[in-house]
């Protein structure tokens, strides 16, 4: 099963740090997200793009996780050479995670 089957996501930028939310469609799937979508798994999934550590924040009341990826934006939105300097499309890579 892909993460996209049970969750949706949005990515945001601040300097060279990306944040990517993972939100359960059904509240009952939140526990599965907590179990399967760990900071370690996300760090491995984004290894080719993010240089820094990954932190995970839990939001049980809205059934969501928030991932913060340091060094994920090619040096920062305002100077990166990347086509998607904001990392807006990183949410789609997140949802491609096999869980």
């Amino acid at each position: 099963m892909k993460l996209r089957d049970i969750a949706h996501s949005r990515a945001g930028d601040k300097g060279d740090i990306a944040n990517i939310s993972v939100i359960a469609y059904a509240p009952g799937d939140y526990a599965l997200l907590v179990e399967r979508v760990t900071a370690e798994r996300v760090a491995a999934h984004f290894a080719a793009l993010a240089t820094g550590p990954v932190r995970r924040y839990e939001m049980p009341l809205i059934g969501a996780l928030n991932f913060v990826l340091e060094g994920a934006l090619g040096g920062g939105v305002t100077r990166a050479l990347r086509l998607d300097a904001h990392g807006k499309s990183l949410s789609s890579l997140m949802l491609d995670l096999e869980i």
Binding site: R10, Y57, I62, G63
Partner: peptide
């Protein structure tokens, strides 16, 4: 919910000039 977490790092400490806002129990 997507907008609630947009460009947020620690949801319990969203630092603003006037307040350290806490969205973690929203």
């Amino acid at each position: 919910k997507e907008q609630l977490l947009y460009e947020i790092h620690d949801p319990a400490a969203y630092l603003q000039p006037d307040v350290a806002a806490d969205f973690s129990r929203a």
